[in-house]
Amino acid sequence: MRPILVFCLPAIGDFIRCHSAIQIIAATFPGHPIDVVTSPMAAPLARLMPHVRKAWTVEKHWNPGLTERARLAREIRRESYQAAYLLTSSTKAALIPWLAGIPERIGYPRELQFGIVNRLPTGWLKTFVAFGPRKTRLVEQVCAIATLGEQTADNMRLPQPRMVVSPEDISAWRIRHGIDAARPALALYTSEFANFRSWPAERFISIARDHSRRGWSVWIVGGPREREASAQIRAALPEAVDFTSTPDITEAMCQIAASTVFLGVDGGICHAAAALGGPCVLIFGSNRAYETGPVNDHVRFLEPPISTPSWIRATNGVSEERVLAALMEAVAQVRRPQGA
């Protein structure tokens, strides 16, 4: 069976949302291998996604010049893909399957790529001429490309993004880092404290102290952007473990998968935590969760009251008490027997 190529968005959170569309394509073409194209930063996550065979990489924002795109097109041509789904509307991205001679190149011609994109979803003109803010969520847009614009049945829900870290990989990670599997762990993703998406430092520290007093491990996850915040938390709570120097993103996925519950703010890592399927509590502010948050059902969102003016770019309206209650409920839900 000839494989199918999916051009995904480059940012981590957006790439994970594309997995909803990948699942639709896999259901439409059972047995066909599916490969993806994304940024080097997001590509390692493809190995954790069901239905994805392998990932091609191209620089974020499709920056490489024509020579680099032509080289990638030559490599892709050898795979004999039957179709390319362009979940990104970038012309630079669309040039690659066109140069590779992939017969069907499916997507929205938002940058007037007529001919380069040669199969348009039903209703493409309506989306092409729409003005103002985006009317649909990103996950709905990429799924509309996967379904060729056909409306799903009323009772059919869009697939939720999913990633899987094997129990063997989690066990190996615990052994490497001397982690006691019997001790519960709270994974914190803070972003930068100066970022309007974050939550006040003193509240993260208070939550961390509360869990530490009750015998929990506290793990701070993320990357270079979170290192300063991690140092601030550890100055107040030295026993907290700083994982922000993790060498690669798949290691971070092991950290999240091995934790008991994840507490985070708006960002790519929160989409990863949601897709991994564990207990997940997310704090959102002026970026409302419905528009930019994960679409996974099990996630608990905490937002300021709806009456808070949208121009207040802060998460201060979310209290510590609400967060503690949500964390306790998230963990209890997992421990509760099914049907209880």
Rank of each mutant, 00 (worst) to 15 (best):
T190N: 11
I116T: 11
A153I: 00
S217P: 08
T57L: 01
I116L: 10
E228I: 13
P161D: 10
T292D: 13
D266F: 06
L99H: 00
D154H: 08
V164T: 14
Q23L: 02
N287W: 08
R119C: 04
A289S: 15
A208S: 06
C8I: 10
S310R: 15
D248K: 13
F196M: 12
V261S: 01
G339I: 02
M41P: 03
G101E: 07
E79R: 05
S245E: 14
P200I: 13
R288E: 14
N63A: 15
Q113N: 13
R110M: 13
P247L: 03
R71D: 02
I145T: 10
A240M: 09
V334N: 06
S212F: 10
T315C: 15
A84G: 04
F15I: 08
R335G: 03
T67V: 06
G65A: 00
S307L: 12
P44R: 04
R2V: 07
L5A: 14
D266V: 07
A182I: 00
S90R: 14
A257S: 10
S319N: 04
T246D: 01
S245H: 14
V261K: 06
R71F: 01
T91P: 06
F204Y: 15
G268Q: 05
R313M: 02
H19V: 10
R336V: 00
Q333G: 02
D169H: 08
P200A: 14
G277P: 11
L66F: 01
Q333V: 00
A274S: 11
V117T: 14
R203T: 00
I306M: 14
Y81Q: 03
A236K: 14
T152K: 04
G317H: 11
Q151T: 05
R137V: 10
W56Y: 15
S319I: 03
A332E: 01
R234C: 09
D180P: 05
T250H: 01
A100C: 05
A235E: 10
I283F: 03
Q113C: 13
V331T: 01
A100K: 05
I207A: 14
I25Y: 01
A93Y: 06
Q160W: 00
I249G: 04
R77Y: 00
G317K: 12
P44V: 03
E320V: 15
P200M: 12
D297P: 07
M163Q: 11
G149W: 05
R336N: 01
R47C: 00
I24F: 08
Y108D: 11
V218F: 04
I306P: 12
P109E: 15
P159E: 05
A27N: 09
P44T: 00
P10Y: 02
Q151P: 07
F196T: 13
V139D: 15
S90D: 11
A100T: 07
K92Y: 03
H32A: 06
P103C: 02
C8N: 09
L95F: 06
D154F: 09
R2P: 14
I306L: 15
E59H: 12
A27K: 12
I233K: 06
